[in-house]
């Protein structure tokens, strides 16, 4: 079986996450999200209310963080469940984790590398919370606009054996 072990460039990775984010919102929530900005940094600090974190291992290692504000989380929960939450409870956190799971999982299928493993999602909530990546890691930050407000996708990833 042919096995791809490297990415030609970082844009393939970014493009996978851009397309997966769009697909998840379009298919599961029936709405369009647009990429507003894409930047690379070594200093990332979340300024959103909720973050869903997915770990990648195997042929591609690192972390992806999907962050939204309360308004986006509540609106998405209303679309999924039919009722609008009034507070950030376990169900809202669960939904953010599932969004992260689907975005990460769908991106994994688009990345031209075989043997990638996906972990279970972890969710952090609270204003001003901080998610740290590996020191010195290059973090790709993609800012999206949803109909309800901003969503950000941060990727800190590397192929084992490369820098």
């Amino acid at each position: 079986m042919p096995t791809t072990t490297s990415l030609h460039n970082g844009s393939e990775l970014n493009e996978s996450f851009i397309e997966s984010t769009k697909a998840v919102f379009s298919m599961m929530l029936g709405c369009t999200v647009e990429l507003a900005a894409a930047t690379r940094s070594t200093n990332f600090k979340s300024s959103h209310d909720l973050s869903g974190i997915i770990g990648f291992s195997g042929a591609l290692q690192g972390t992806v963080v999907i962050s939204v504000d309360q308004e986006v989380a509540f609106s998405a929960a209303e679309m999924f469940l039919g009722t609008r939450p009034t507070e950030i409870d376990d169900e809202v956190r669960d939904m953010v984790g599932e969004l992260a799971n689907m975005i990460g999982g769908n991106a994994k299928e688009r990345i031209p590398i075989t043997g990638i493993l996906l972990g279970l999602p972890t969710v952090i909530s609270g204003k001003g919370h901080r998610v740290s990546f590996e020191p010195g890691a290059h973090i790709e930050h993609m800012a999206f606009e949803t109909p309800w407000g901003p969503l950000s996708v941060e990727i800190g990833m590397r192929v084992p054996g490369t820098k």
Binding site: F80, G82, D94, N101, L120
Partner: peptide, 13 residues
């Protein structure tokens, strides 16, 4: 499913 939200989506369907 380990996601309660996903279980609800499936049960609605």
């Amino acid at each position: 499913d380990d996601s309660g939200v996903m279980r609800k989506i499936i049960i609605r369907s």
